[in-house]
Every structure is written in C-alpha cells, then in structure tokens.
Design a protein around this nucleic acid. Structure first.
Lengths: 350, 350
DNA sequence: CTGAAAGCGCTAACAA
DNA sequence: TTGTTAGCGCTTTCAG
C-alpha cells in the first residue's frame, strides 16, 4: 500500500534539456572568442591575461554554469590535490576527531582529504589503498602501523607521502604520528595496582582486529605481571565497541564466579556503558567494582562518577599528521616518529 | 630541546630510485608484448581476452606494482564512480551514522562516497559543491533542503542525481529522504504540556546556522502556543553542540530568575550534558527540572534517568538515500519525498 | 581474441 | 597578453 502510494508520485529523471550544454573550456573559448588557453589561465588565475579577457570569461562562466573538470586538469598536470585518509571506523568519535584535525590543516592548503573506512579489515584496507592510489593522491594518511605486506609494498612503491597515525609502537613506512597504546595499558595497570585491586579483568573486542586495543591489552597485562599479578578474567565481544557491548561484558563478568574488583575496558565507549549499568543498578563504583577506559571522552568525564581514563591527543594527531604531510610535499625531511603523549585522568571510578 | 631532538632524526623524502618506474598501461603492454588495449581489457575484466594474456598481465602487474590510473580512465569513459556526500559536521555521531548507511549501499555497487564538511556555512557549502562537481561525480547526497540559490542552480544544472537528506520540511531539488524536524518539536511540546510543565525553556545553538534545529524549535514553539503556552526563556550558544554547551545552557537558565520547570534542548548532546550536570549536583530530574533532547542516542537512553528524546532514523536515511541514488542512476523514477518517520522515547527525564 | 587510431578535457611549453 | 602544439593515460570504436 505504502509502495503504491509512493509510486504515484515518482519523479522522472531530469531531462537532458534546458541546461545549456556547456561542458568544456572550448565552449567558453568559442563563446568569448578567446582561446582555450586564455580561458584556462583565467579559470585558474595563473599566468597573465587582460582584465577584459577575465571579465569576458567570468561572464560566460556565470551565464553557462560551466564547471571546471578536475579529472582532465589533474591528468594534464599529473597531480591531483587529493589526500587519501584511511581509518578503521567512523562509528567512533575518535577517528572523526582525527579527521577534523586533518581537514583543518589540509583544506586551507588547497588539498582535499578523501576518506575511506576499512572496518578493521586488512584485506579491505589493501583494496582501499589500491583504489585510493588509483586516484593519484598527493599523499596518504592511514591509521595504524600494521598492514598486510602487500599494502606496505604498495604504499612504499607509490613514492608519495605516507603518514601513519594513532600509533607509534612499531616501525613506520615513512613517518608515524600518535601515541603509545602499550604505555596507556601500563598506566592503568599501575593505577589499579596502586589502588589495591587484585582481582582484575579486561573487557574488549576481539583483539585480532583492533590491533591498537591489543597493544593496550598487552601493555596492561605485562605491567600487571611486573607487580606479580595476572588477569583474573577477560571477556571479548565482537566489533564494534558500543555502550551495550560494555554493559554486556560487565554483566558477564559479574555473573561469573570470578569475583572481580576492577575492569579495564578497551575504550571509553565500553567503559561508559558499564558505568551507566552500575549507576542504574546501584552497584557501587569503585567500591564494589572499579572501572577504567581509554580516550578520555567528555561523556566519561561528565558522569556523576568520572571515569578513570587516558586522554588521547586525537585532534592534535590529525593536525600534526597533516602538517607533516605538507612538509613532505614541500620536500622537507620529517621525523620518523612523533609521540604526542597521553594524559592520565584519575577520575573516581577506580 | 624537543625540536632539536626531533631534528636529529629527520628522514629525507623517499628517493625516486628503487621502485621500477612502471606507471602506465603502455609499460605493462611492452613488458608483456601485448597491446595497451588487451592489457586494459584484462585490468577491467571486460571484453574478451585469452587466459594466456590474462596470466601475462597479472604477472607483470604483480611484479611491477602497477596501479591503474582512474583519473585517465574516468576522463576517457566520461564517468567517475564517485558520489559526493556533503554534510554540515562530522563532530556529531548523527552524520557519521548517515554516512555509514550510505557507504554500506554505495560500496558494493562499485561507487565511492567522497565526503565534504560544510561546518554549517552555506558559502562554504557552495564552494564545496563546486569542487565536488568538478570531479564529475555520479551523484550528490547533501544534507538539508536549504542552500544558496547559486548552490541549487549548480546542483540542478549538473544534471546528475541529487538526493537531499535529513529533512523533508521544504521542497527538494530532486528527491528528499529523512524526517520532519518540525514534527519532532511538536511531539516534545505536546509531551511537556501533557506532563504539566508550564514554565518551559529552550536551549540550543544559534538557529541561523543549524536550520534543522531551527525547524524543531519552531515546531516546538508553535505547538506550545496551540496549548496557550509560550516559551518562558531560551539560551542560544555558539556552535558546535557539546555536552559542555548543554551544561552551561542549563546553568544559565537556572541562574536566571525565570524559574524554569522544563527545558527542550537542541539535541541529545546538549541534553545529556545537562542531565549529567543534574546528576552530579543532585538536582532532581524530572521533579526539579525536566529535560528532553533529540536523536535518541544510546548515551541518553543509558543514563540512570533515561533521557526523553526522539529517535531519528539515521542509518536508514543513509541507506535509503543511497538506494534512491542507485535508482536514479538506473534511470528509474524516484519519489520526491521519503519520510522515514520518528520514534518518541518517553524516558524518565520529563 | 587482438590491435590501431582517435579522442576524453585539460595544461605545459613554447612561439608570436 | 594571447595562441598553437603536443601530450597526460586511458578507453571507445572499428578493423583484422
């Protein structure tokens, strides 16, 4: 019924009539009596041309609605003003903030970021890298240091600027900007130990996919062992992380007989979900259950019981990576690794 | 000091050596002894070619790392597999969810979404539309129905598929997919009235920028007036919305002598910030202060006192808009307006 | 199944 | 200041 209703007012595709079919520089050229080259110069504001020529062209463009064809332009000049940005997800504020930082620097420089999302799938990442490279971008900003050998080869071979972001624990193809996830895990472990927790659990998503979460996990476990402790329990849920995933993970841990007193979550999303669950069900945090996350999101800090977390420099990572990309394009040398550091947020949840 | 430390290990730009300089189809052609055309056919898997030719080409591609040049390909075929997606912000989960829905449909169809962010600036939107059109995309998915006359003209004139999303209160260029913001405002007003609130306030960001928030506001105020009520107070903060903006707005309202009993916020971000503030400061919600937002985000629903809100179909909007785009590309007719509806979430905060 | 020729719309380089 | 020529790397078309 709904369908038939909709069908009644279907609108046909736009007729190819009406719009003056002016599609190329040549059209503007013949319309103004100038040559293609002069029109091209005016369009780009490069080279020299008379005021008269400029006005003629502008008028013609206004009248016809001519839009420059960058496909052809980029092909002719052999460069494309594009910068590929490849991230695992945008379902998480973390990467959108990085992207915001990147745009903030790239756009004023006349470059256009083009986003691709891998969904934490390295095969997909490889395919996306190839697609992106086929647009002949000026550079690539890509999340993480772990890629398939083929992807690394592709990126290296491209000869363009490659900036890896959000992780510095490993060896970059060219240049890495971010922070140490391993260190983040260690900091929370040390904090838990100092606060006297002994029956400690971890809750996160499948570690084979989110490599950076895995690095935090390893740093966490390693630091526990330094203090003679080990993980009492862990829960791994499928991607993506979410408030619900955090809540479910905590419930699972509490239902088990493990008698946990503190949980380290993969990130703030999950930790906040767990914290909300505790608040709703009058589970005393941190007395009955201590919680900690990662990223230092506002939502965790604003909770009645502020979440123990670690602030990651996300926008800064975006900005810095874009700046380094510009340095590279200017032919400058860049550091192999830029550590933007982390900030521990004690909170009250542990 | 830090700087000098970094400078010590600056890495020079990659030498243009090493990589076999194989950049074009012709290179593969001469390497395999085949013609450009045969190589092209194999690369695209189109037309016919022998198994032998295929194997030769694949081997050469593997060895040389040749990457297809879409700039040239798109220019030759006069079509580009690109779809422009233009949104006001990505600092808000709302639009990233729409984008996720779009990618989910477009990617399997062999199309590539290209994102551009306007920051709620119509002049910037116009510039971005022109830039996007210059890449000759197959279509444009753009948030909202309000654009500058020039932008509308550009889009119309482009002759490609144009889908406007996230709003249906107005007349689309071609086809609009989303929901009614005006209706969302009305629903909350009706709810507030029914619950017995009489000293009602609104808190949001500058309405001249976020047109959709303005529509919710108008729907809200209009419905209040139907019930003989008017807004007791309002606070407008600068963009972007955030938890802090919500908290600050609420505090401002409480400090004034207006004696407010309920506040309608521009969106869940702000409302959750305000709710968190109340929880931290033992302000009884909804007894001392009732709160409502918009979007129905998980974070609001998970609060110890669930936020009154309205769930907007964000992923669905993305999916549906992309589907309609595909319909258009297939030459099919499409409805002028698709209303995906809203879902009221009563919560406990009002 | 394969190849040669022509051209997509633009710009670099040179000439006038 | 303006115009001409020769491509950029690919695909379409048509012939073999």
């Amino acid at each position: 019924v709904l369908n038939s209703k909709l069908n009644q007012r279907l609108v046909a595709p736009a007729k190819t009539v009406a719009k003056l079919d002016v599609k190329t520089l040549s059209d503007i050229a013949s319309r103004t009596g100038l040559s293609k080259m002069t029109v091209s110069r005016v369009m780009r504001g490069e080279g020299s041309f008379s005021v008269k020529a400029k006005e003629k062209v502008q008028k013609a463009v206004r009248e016809t609605g001519y839009v420059h064809n960058r496909l052809a332009g980029s092909l002719a000049t052999q460069k494309s003003s594009l910068v590929a940005v490849i991230v695992p997800t945008i379902g998480n504020i973390v990467f959108t903030e990085v992207l915001a930082g990147i745009s903030q620097v790239l756009t004023p420089a006349g470059l256009q970021p083009v986003l691709a999302v891998t969904d934490y799938d390295l095969e997909r990442e490889d395919a996306l890298v190839e697609t992106m490279l086929s647009w002949r971008p000026q550079g690539v900003i890509i999340a993480g240091l772990e890629h398939t050998p083929l992807t690394r080869k592709r990126l290296k071979r491209s000869g363009i600027a490659i900036i890896e972001v959000m992780d510095i624990d490993g060896s970059p193809i060219d240049c890495a900007v971010g922070f140490s996830h391993s260190e983040a895990g260690q900091i929370i472990a040390r904090h838990f130990v100092k606060q006297g927790y002994r029956r400690i659990a971890y809750a996160g998503t499948d570690l084979t996919y989110d490599v950076r979460a895995a690095k935090r996990f390893k740093g966490f476990v390693k630091e526990l062992s330094v203090h003679g402790l080990h993980l009492t329990a862990d829960v791994m849920t499928p991607l993506p992380t979410s408030l619900e995933a955090g809540e479910n993970a905590l419930r699972k841990l509490m239902e088990s007989a493990a008698d946990i007193d503190a949980v380290y979550f993969s990130n703030d999303d999950m930790a906040v979900g767990a914290l909300q669950y505790c608040l709703r069900n009058a589970i005393a945090v941190p007395e009955a259950m201590a919680l900690a996350g990662f990223n230092g999101l506002g939502i965790g800090q604003g909770m009645p019981i502020a979440l123990t977390s670690i602030r990651s420099p996300r926008v800064e990572t975006g900005i810095r990576s874009a700046e380094l990309l510009l340095d590279r394009l200017a032919g400058k040398g860049v550091p192999r690794t830029v550590n933007l550091g982390l900030q521990f947020l004690a909170g009250q949840s542990s």
